[in-house]
């Protein structure tokens, strides 16, 4: 990186130099979309696993001819157990009046409510960061009270998780391919640059340049090309993600889960140009040094 402002090889005038950042840009764009997609997917999966809004409801079914006091006791016992459980931030037994109010449109009036065997509801707000495992929670509840029911999304959640993992593997594989393609482009560009300037390289070599000196000329160019390409790619990627986000905001949001890229996701994506630049730089260096060792 010494004297990066001065170069002995007129590499920046080569016709391929203008094209390479755009190809790298395209590759970075693909990588950016794949990464953003898989980050969103895992975010989405996380939210589904936690229940859409992070709240879960337990139904406590009354037994036949059960006195309201006994049902109240069962509810209170469950509330105490749930309050002691890790991963649950808040537990609230919904008062009978609220349930009655919910049912009022259907039943009409409040007079006959006492006569109906209404199930009782307990709302829980889960700790989104560390939710309790749903399976264990379910077993615990039915052990404590056979009449307590937790909404069961378990099976389709597992299948969804498998699907998300498969999609993420595909995305990861594509990112890998895109990375290999980028390396291929840099190797190709470096080799053609070396061929175009073989005479200059030979003179440098004969006046006592070490391999690293010659390599530096190519690796500095590759670094800036990788950086430029990376910035082009991430800019297009960010525009696409924002565009899709904008479109999603204007669709009925009750269908789509509300997922947004988090701050650290953006940090990961923003680091792509630096990663591309470093990959390009070390690829160029290896390419030059390997081919120079063929010279005496």
């Amino acid at each position: 990186m010494i004297r990066s402002g001065r170069t002995d090889l007129p590499l920046s005038r080569d016709p391929s130099v203008r094209l390479v950042p755009w190809i790298i840009g395209l590759m970075t764009y693909l990588a950016c979309l794949m990464l953003a997609g898989s980050l969103l997917l895992s975010e989405m999966l996380g939210q589904w696993t936690n229940g859409l809004s992070g709240t879960v409801t337990v139904q406590v079914l009354p037994q036949e001819q059960e006195a309201p006091e006994l049902l109240n006791e069962r509810v209170e016992k469950l509330v105490r157990i749930l309050e002691r459980t890790d991963g649950i931030d808040e537990v609230r037994a919904i008062p009978l009046e609220e349930i009655a109010a919910l049912l009022e449109p259907w039943v009409g009036g409040t007079a006959s409510l006492d006569a109906l065997p209404l199930p009782r509801l307990i709302d829980m707000r889960l700790n989104v960061a560390a939710p309790p495992p749903m399976g264990e929670l379910k077993t615990m509840l039915s052990n404590a009270d056979p009449g307590a029911l937790l909404d069961d999304h378990g099976i389709w959640q597992d299948q969804l998780a498998d699907l998300v993992i498969a999609l993420e593997l595909v995305a990861g594989f594509i990112v890998l391919l895109v990375g290999l393609a980028t390396i291929g482009i840099v190797i190709f560009a470096t080799r053609s640059g070396m061929a175009a300037h073989q005479d200059v390289i030979e003179v440098l070599h004969l006046i006592g340049a070490e391999d690293g000196y010659v390599a530096r000329q190519f690796q500095n160019l590759a670094l800036t090309q990788g950086l430029r390409g990376g910035i082009i790619g991430i800019a297009m990627g960010a525009a696409t993600i924002w565009g899709l986000g904008y479109a999603a905001d204007h669709i009925d949001s009750s269908i789509l889960p509300q997922v947004k890229l988090l701050a650290w996701h953006w940090v990961v994506l923003a680091s792509l140009p630096a990663v591309t630049a470093l990959i390009a730089r070390s690829t160029a260096r290896r390419t030059v040094v390997r081919s120079l060792t063929r010279m005496v």
């Binding site: 004297r3 002995d8 007129p10 005038r13 005479d199 440098l204 006046i207 070490e210």
Partner: peptide, 23 residues
């Protein structure tokens, strides 16, 4: 075997630059 894209000065300076001599 002069480098045509470099000035006379830079051509003559090349062996020193290659050897890492201060500018």
């Amino acid at each position: 075997r002069l480098l045509n894209h470099l000035s006379a000065f830079d051509n003559v300076a090349l062996p020193l630059r290659v050897a890492g001599v201060k500018e």
